[in-house]
Write a protein that binds this DNA or RNA. Structure first.
Lengths: 134, 134
DNA sequence: GTGTCTGCAAAGAATTTGCAAAGAC
DNA sequence: GTCTTTGCAAATTCTTTGCAGACAC
């Protein structure tokens, strides 16, 4: 589906600013607000920070983007909105891990621990990695 | 080990403010900054927000507290500093899950996906739950 | 006594908001 | 033409910092 259609589908008007922000994140897969602001304003000095914040919030509210709480404290936006997990490398990079079998396994295990009236909505794993010492 | 000894062990002086903040979190197991500020200032109106921030930062730096990135965007402090996971309930509550076997299983699985030069430092799972519909 | 910690006020960073003009459809 | 979105500036919220006096040890 095209970027344009994704926005129309959720009732957002298609503006150059929205396309630009979406495409920046599409290229990076994961991007922090800071990265997005720098790239966007480099390409188009007219775009303002408040517009970028508004766009990111409306994309998240409409499930066009995922939000990742990076352990470094910064918020990252994720082009992948499906249930998946992340490797966080020591240089702060995020790598997607898609492993439905593992997710299902955790779900089973958690179901044994919670009450019958509760349900599991989402499971998210963060795996911190670094380079092994020589 | 006593609260006092925990602080002395890492070279922090024991002050009434530090004891107070530590004990507030101890009682709650997990507490947001907001909760800590409200409780602390209710018990002792003298204590200031900047002192509380400084105490929380030094406790985290010295591994007396863990930091949790709650999906609601707020930072929570965790009395449990060992590797463990969290259930996040729909009313924002955090519940510890201690399951070393599951952690080990994920570690094995991740090792198959990453390069031989990398190592897994920490694994953290967040499980979002809610009440099942009738 | 010495060095650390706290309270205060101010600074700094990050994010949101109100409003008028511009733009999407 | 109508309703939404943007740019701008200001406001708000969250967190950190500098400094002088107080406190831990």
């Amino acid at each position: 589906m095209s970027t344009t259609d994704k926005m129309r589908n959720v009732g957002l008007k298609v503006t150059p600013q929205r396309k630009q922000v979406y495409e920046i994140i599409e290229k990076l897969a994961h991007a922090s607000i800071e990265e997005i602001i720098i790239k966007a304003q480099h390409e188009n000095p007219e775009i303002t920070v408040s517009t970028i914040y508004r766009i990111l919030n409306s994309f998240c509210d409409n499930n066009l983007l995922g939000k990742v709480n990076h352990p470094n404290g910064r918020t990252y936006y994720d082009i992948n909105t499906h249930e998946h997990h992340h490797i966080v490398t020591s240089n702060q990079e995020l790598i997607d891990i898609d492993d439905p079998e593992l997710t299902q396994l955790i779900r089973q295990r958690v179901l044994e621990k919670i009450g019958v009236k509760e349900q599991v909505d989402k499971i998210s794993i963060q795996i911190m990695t670094s380079m092994r010492q020589e």
